[in-house]
Each structure stands twice: as C-alpha cells, then as structure tokens.
Design a protein around this nucleic acid. Structure first.
Lengths: 346, 346
DNA sequence: TAGTAACATCTAATCGGTTAGAACTACTCC
DNA sequence: GGAGTAGTTCTAACCGATTAGATGTTACTA
C-alpha cells in the first residue's frame, strides 16, 4: 500500500475552489466571515478528502501548541506517579484540559536532578504553560523555580504558595489549617493528650501538618510534648514503629493526628494487634481521604484534600493565564478547603 | 520589562557571520560537516544569545515531534492514573523516553467514550507514535483499534497480543501462565482444594488469570469446583465477601490464588479477623507485587509483574518502529516473564 | 449617480527551522 | 595548466498552517 499522501490545506482549497485563507476561516470559524455556500463547499471538501489540520504547523504560526507541561518531582522519580497525590492531580488536570482540547505532557523528576534536560524542554516552544508540583522547599528548588520563571511560561504551582514571588499562580489547600482543625476537633471531643504521627519532614506538607498540630495545642492552652510527636517517613511501615513508640510512653496519648491516611490505616492495624480499640481507646484522624480509608474497618475519619479539584483548578487558572497576554499580571492564589470527614475513628 | 524577543537561528547566523544552514548543521551535528572554527563561532553565538531551537518549527519540517502519546482507558477515567498498573507503566515509559529526549503526552479515556476527540489528536501530526493500554476486549475496542490503525501511527500495545493483526507491536506478560504457575505451585505444596478470587471479569486480565487457574487444576488432574471461584470486582472490599463465601463452604479451600495483591491483602485481613492463620490454615498467593505486599504481615507471596519494565520495553519498541520508515513491517511481540515471589503467605 | 460602507475573498508574507543543489575554495594528479 | 575531487558554505525551496492588506462585489446613502 502506498504511503497515504497527507491531505493539506491546499488540497482542500483546490477541491473547494477557494483560497487557503478561506479554508482557515472555515476551520477556525473566523477570524473573518465566510458566505454560507462557500462554507458548505469547504466543509464538503474537508470531509471528502479526510482533511485534518496539522497541529504542528498551526502551532508554529500561532504560537499556541495547546499543550501544557506537568512537572513533578519526588525523592525518587519512580514514585512520582505511584503517589496517589500526583495521580489525582493529574486526573483532574487531564479531565479539565481534555474538555478544552488541550493536552498534558508529563515530566517526572528526581529531587536534585540536573535541570539541563528540563530547560531544553521548557525553551523549546513546545508548551503553552506549566503546572508544577515540587515536594520540597530548599534553595535548590528556588533555583529551579528561578530557571522556570526565566522562560516566561505561564505557570501554576500546586501547593507552593511561595511561588507567587516568581510571578506564578498557585492552587493550594491549607495543610496547616487542616491539621489545626483536626487537632482542635480532637480537643473539642475532650482529648488532652494528642499525638502526632509525622510524615517525611523534607516535604513541605509534612512540616505544615506538624505546624498546624502544634499551633492548635498552643492556642487551646495545651502543652507541646515532643514525645508525642513521632515519625519522619511516608512509608506506611513507619506507622508501626510510631505506634509502638506512643504505646510505650509513660503516659500514652488518647488520640492521634496522623499525617496521611496510609500511615493512619497502618497505625490502626497495629493498634488492633495490641487490642487497643479505635476510637474508644485511641482516636485517629488521617489526612488525604484515600479510597481505602472509606472502606476500612472502622471507616477512617480524615481530613479530605480535594486533589482532583486541585488539578482542575490548576488547569483553569493556567488557561486563563495563557489567554491573558501578560501572564505575570494574572497571577493569583486559589485556596481550596480541607474538610473534616467524620467517620468511625474519631 | 519588554517582552524578551525570541532568538532564532537567523540571529545566530547573523551573529556568527554564517548562513542559517550552517547553524543547523552545527546544532544537529550534521548532516554535513562544518569546519572547526566556524563551529566554534556558531556555538559561541548560540551561548551569547541564549538561543534555543524551536521544537515546533523543527517538527513541522522534519515531521518528528519527539512526542509520543500514552492512551489509557478504564471503566472510569478517574481511575486511570490511580491504578498503580498504569502509573507504573507510565513511570517506565517516561524514564526510558526522557533518557532519549522524547516526551509523553497522556490521554486517559473512559471505556466507551466518544472517540472524536481522540481522533483529532491522533490525526493532528502532533505525535510520533503511541503506547496504548485498553482494558477490555470488546468489539468496541476493536473498532477503536481499527481507527487507530487507520492513522498509520506506530503503535505499541500493552497487554493486548491481539493487536498485532492491526500492525501494532505489543509488550505483554503472560497472565494466564502466571496464574497457572501460582496454582501449580500450590498444588506442588500439597494443596488439593484451591480457591480463586477473581477480579472484574470485564478485564482481559481477570479472565486470563481465571483461565490459568483452571488450566493448572485440569492439567494436574484436579476437578474444577465452581464454588471455589468467586469475585467479579477489583475493589479490595470485594475480597471480604469472597472470603466469607469461601469460609462458608461445606469444604473450604486450603489455599487461594487471588487476582491482585490489593484483593489478597484485604482477604488476609479478613482471614485474620476470623482467626484463620495464614499460611497455615489458608495459603494465599497474590498478583502484581505491589509495595504494600512486601511490608505486610506476613509478607505477601505473589506473582510479580514487571510493569515498570513493561513501560520501558514499550518505549524501546516504539522508538524502533519510529526509526523504521515502514513501522508495520516492524511489529513484534515482546513477552516479559511473570515470576513467583515466595514470601510469607504461601 | 457618485461616493462609501460592509462584506467576502484572494494574495502573499510569516512562523523557525531543515536540506537538496549550486557554488566556492584548496588541493591533487596528470 | 586544466580537470577532478573533497571539503565547506551559501541559496532558496519547503514543511502546513494563519492573517494583514489588497481587491472585488454589492448595497446603501445623500
């Protein structure tokens, strides 16, 4: 079979007996009007010939590729998409963009990885804008943000409010506030010794949740006991050791705010193994609202984070920035609520 | 700040006092040689001006965008990236492609969703090739494959051997064989009543695993008891009911082949709740080798599926097809091994 | 009826690269 | 000295679209 010849613009113009300009006007519904019968002729030619506009050529001329980059890092790039966090954001992102005929190019990175390859991508005029989510807040990350800013690409950060100083927008939820609310809720239920099972403290998220926990205790006049703060790892296994630590204390807590649902579920499993009833002997509040929590036994009380929404809002914001010619003038922060989902563990 | 003017190869040519052709030769190391000092002059101009080649223009001329599409469907597109299956494949895919300066555009779909939007993408000349993973094997899926084949894009299917008849390549692992081996292993350990906890049977994967289980029993002269086959859902919750069903049988099984690790872990949890010891009273073999299984108590025996490798091989194969002018002449099937990982549950 | 506004269409430049073919240089070999 | 050759470099066509400006109609207005 001979290699099917590509059908271009010109072919359509010839077949319809018009100029290529008119074909463009018909295909794009503008920017100039066309008479009814010419329009019909062109449409017929398009469908007769099986014409499909070439997005690359269009992109070259119009400087719009309808493609946005999703740049994500983690301490191991192998985990980037395995983390349900990024997966959910990506889900929201693609859902929203697809509806508007835009596409997502994914770019996972290791923390600290050489940025040469990334810069080549960013400067290749291949992307209309970026959604980025970087897990840490080190000087290296700042340097990376600087490089990204230098490209002048419209950019929305996930969960990195500091990014506005680079002219980026951000979609965030209030981790600190969520943790504060979780802790306050436990206090309102009468708990006085409340533990915090902390995630990997290299992550902004883990630190914010720890800070919220501390602030709530302080604001309610409760002392902060460092022995009640334990953990430095997102790996669920870590919850086992943390629970053992808590139970070994002279005065164990009666409730725990746990930095993720994964950790919380494992913690509860460990508690059960030691015949500690949840929530009667130990109340537990998780973080994230993962599907497994809903089905757990008892179902997990947690702080729900609207990650899919986050992705959608990011897409929304980004498209707005892309519309606006001067994207840095458009930068905004959008704050999404973190809400307590009361189920069976607190 | 004035909008930074784009630096094009013309600017570089002017600055270096050469023609644009030479700039191209230098940037691409060919296809024609350049003298040493001209080369130096051009490189200096490039770095002085901060020139970055425009990938869109290059793509237009050379018909190579260095972008490949990852098309994935599921019964809910919301689950596409949450499934650790697709996440792992995507990880392998991006890892391999990134190393070769290629990019991945993701396109999640719902089963049965209208393909108009997808066709627009595929025909837009934006992609050099495709990696696809479709979960079912219905006539609708065949129709979709037909449409994809019509675009003449090089294409690699994940886990869909039948795709060769469209001129696609495929990277597969042998689900049926894996399940067969798991079952045979249990038989070799002396088990005679072996149950199968099945996944959602709309999925090819679930059906293949069921078939392998059956074949192993038959080949070893054991009867197939339909009461020992239960389940039609990937949701871990379903494992609870399945276990209850098995335990309620007149003659319960002494071992189970479970269609996924997620299901297996939940099943074990349920077994423990009923004081059934694993593996002493009930041996369990899962499928997939998810991280949580390694850390479970006892650690889960499972059939390991090399999903990250799968993604890498798919990338490999696809790039080869893209190199070859006539990609349909290149189609191949690559079979990856599924191996038993013996840990604590069987 | 001439002048003009509104509309539809065509012409051709442009986006930023790649590459075949022509042209120039320097050198070798009879 | 002239032809042949290899090594470089230049010229200009081309990839497939978009769009400003020119042009040609038709309709309306004074």
């Amino acid at each position: 079979m001979a290699p099917k010849k590509r059908v271009t613009h010109q072919d359509v113009a010839r077949a319809a007996g018009v100029s290529t300009a008119v074909v463009s006007y018909v295909v794009n519904n503008g920017p100039r009007p066309t008479s009814h019968d010419v329009r019909e002729r062109v449409l017929k030619a398009i469908s007769d010939l099986g014409y499909h506009p070439n997005a690359v050529a269009r992109g070259l001329r119009s400087r719009r590729t309808n493609t946005i980059g999703y740049i994500v890092n983690d301490y191991s790039s192998m985990d980037v998409f395995l983390s349900s966090y990024n997966a959910q954001v990506l889900t929201g992102l693609t859902a929203e963009l697809k509806a508007r005929e835009h596409y997502v190019l994914v770019y996972p990175m290791d923390v600290g990885e050489d940025v040469g390859s990334l810069e080549r991508l960013l400067n290749s005029s291949r992307l209309d804008g970026l959604v980025i989510r970087l897990v840490d807040e080190t000087p290296e990350t700042d340097a990376l943000l600087e490089r990204i800013a230098a490209t002048r690409l419209p950019c929305v950060c996930i969960e990195q409010a500091g990014a506005v100083r680079f002219g980026f927008s951000a979609v965030i939820y209030d981790d600190r506030r969520g943790s504060y609310d979780a802790t306050s809720y436990l206090i309102s239920r009468g708990h006085r010794r409340i533990g915090h099972l902390c995630g990997d403290r290299r992550y902004v998220t883990a630190r914010a949740r720890l800070a919220g926990y501390r602030a709530a205790l302080t604001d309610h006049g409760l002392p902060i006991d460092d022995a009640l703060i334990y953990g430095n790892d997102w790996n669920p296994e870590a919850a086992h050791a943390a629970v053992m630590h808590m139970l070994g204390l002279h005065a164990p807590p009666t409730a725990m705010v746990v930095a993720s649902d994964d950790l919380a579920l494992k913690a509860i499993e460990t508690l059960h193994m030691h015949n500690i009833r949840v929530p009667d002997d130990m109340a537990v509040i998780g973080f994230d609202d993962i599907p497994a929590g809903r089905n757990a036994n008892p179902p997990l009380t947690t702080m729900r984070i609207p990650l899919v929404d986050l992705g959608q809002h990011a897409a929304d914001l980004l498209l707005e920035m892309i519309q606006a010619e001067d994207s840095t003038a458009m930068n905004r922060i959008e704050l999404l609520p973190v809400e307590l989902v009361r189920r069976g563990t607190a």
